[in-house]
Nucleic acid binder design. Structure first.
Lengths: 225, 225
DNA sequence: CCAAAAGTGTTCCGTCTACACCCATGG
DNA sequence: CCATGGGTGTAGACGGAACACTTTTGG
């Protein structure tokens, strides 16, 4: 049985993961050296072929989990890339996914095993195939959405200082933000909760730690920064 | 020669077109009855399989051209849909594209041949497979972008009145807009040119016709409505 | 005691919103 | 002459941007 659509040609479909992290006040991308032909040894996003028993989402999650050991990450589709010659080997259509992770959370062993590296987005090398285009699109998506959706928290530990949060915005939007205006806006968002914990790693005085309350956010469901 | 990726399984990939038009002060969608199994006879978006010699864009343009006779339309990718069971027949990954067209422009013969129908978006029937989800996503994309990009002009003839333009925004955003405020904002955009032509089809007094100057827009490249 | 990061309000200006009446014309 | 859609300005509210000093404490 060839099924309903037998006369049409099938193609390979892969997923590629654009993995953002935040460290040292910089937005970074997790990339590695490609371990297969064609393009072996070139810088590349992490990706993999979509299997017949998994959805696109699932495939992207699998790739990311294999690499970082993490599950249930924030992940969003960036788009499908389907130019005929985009892959130097065969015709492959690739669906790019963007992940936001807390840089401190990854599994170091796995990272070493894969030779994964965090590279600042301002300092990216040329990547395999059309991966640079994917990254560019992911960044512009991130810039547009960061002001309307609570994405920034995915790049931080669950407890964070307001200075850290501000640095995330500055890194993504690329520019300085006024501290007082920023904090004024934060105060209006009840779902960003002040704890009574204090972080002293960054200053002698110490800074209050805050927490994103997802539950409360979903009730309010308005975000504007 | 099986090529580089021989050990992985290929899948069918299709494109589906979400075709918006504007008529009678309403935003409408072009849909038809599915002419193949499975799902023959169900309401459906127009789509087709991606051939091995065309990009995703090209495939979407081909489908749209076959249906409407139009080329060089505004078209934007909405996203890839890849759940395993989304298509009741086989495993098919589909990439949705959103097109904005001027309802007056289509080729009536082709439309009849395909049994295509314009349906107001508030009044959509249940569609084949996950097509309703695609449409929902396309509409939310359109709503987000209409204020930042000059999309509205694609839904209108090249000469249009300000009242028509306003109605486009009202139809997409779903709500009334103040006429004076709207026109004030339009006046600040030099790339919306007033002509000295007058349209009398809608009123006895007649209304000035305007034109979108794409060249001028690209120089200014700021849009806010 | 001083360097380094944390924290805190007010003023100003531009933008968005609300709002009502006259105009031109075909029938 | 009147019904219908076309066209116009102003005042008040609101939100965003600019701006500088005090606090805390480890070394």
């Amino acid at each position: 049985m060839t099924g309903f659509y037998g006369e049409h040609s099938k193609v390979w479909v892969s997923v590629d993961c654009i993995i953002f992290g935040f460290d040292n006040d910089k937005l970074k991308l997790l990339i590695g050296r490609r371990q297969m032909d064609p393009g072996r040894g070139e810088w590349s996003l992490y990706g993999g072929f979509v299997q017949s028993d998994e959805s696109l989402q699932d495939a992207a999650n699998r790739v990311l989990h294999n690499l970082t050991g993490l599950r249930r990450l924030y992940m969003k589709q960036v788009g499908a890339f389907g130019d005929i010659d985009r892959d130097p080997g065969e015709r492959v259509i690739s669906v790019a996914y963007c992940a936001l992770i807390n840089v401190k959370d990854y599994d170091e062993k796995l990272m070493e095993e894969y030779g994964a590296q965090w590279v600042p987005i301002d300092d990216l090398p040329q990547l395999y195939s059309d991966h640079n285009i994917m990254v560019k699109k992911a960044i512009s998506l991130l810039r547009r959405r960061i002001g309307t959706e609570p994405l920034s928290f995915n790049l931080l530990p669950s407890l964070f200082t307001l200075t850290q949060l501000q640095h995330v915005y500055e890194a993504i939007l690329g520019g300085d933000i006024d501290k007082r205006n920023f904090r004024k806006r934060i105060k209006q968002m009840d779902f960003i909760e002040k704890t009574d914990l204090i972080d002293k790693t960054m200053s002698k005085r110490g800074a209050y730690l805050y927490r994103f309350n997802k539950r409360m956010y979903q009730e309010e469901s308005s975000f504007k920064l």
